[in-house]
Amino acid sequence: MITPGGRFRVVTVVETLLVFLVAPLAVYLLLWALTYLPGGRKRQGVRYKPGQPWDHEPVWYEPQPANAPTHAAGHGDTQAVGSSLYGEPAAIGSGDGHGPGAGVATAHGATAAGSPDHGSTIGSHVIASDSSPAPAAVGPLGGARGTW
């Protein structure tokens, strides 16, 4: 350092340590704390790790209908707004799993969650209970299977 007199001043050991050791350490610790200490951004949802059990309700997601209405809800629809802004037929949320359409209730919105017992959730979709009529065979099915 240069003193007002233009002469170099002797830097003490303490100052050296402060500048070259304590200051970087402080920066490092601050970043570490911001990164790893809890209480930061909370993660929604579950973190899936292969091999852990999956004890969630089954969910069935389906695409948004192609000719979906653009208004929020029409006459006879609930005002429930899921991820989508499409109205939903009110009978679906009635909870017995027997909405319109013979056991398979069709609701809009891929952000669906439902259970066989009460199929009332956001944007939702009722999973048909096991008592629904046996579906007619449509012919040979294809597909693939995989494990991991």
Binding site: R43, V46, Q79, V81, T121, S124
Partner: peptide, 15 residues
């Protein structure tokens, strides 16, 4: 309504 009820949050809204 349905949006008020709790649901199984398997995924975040972004997912």
């Amino acid at each position: 309504n349905r949006a008020d009820e709790g649901y199984d949050t398997i995924f975040s809204y972004r997912e």
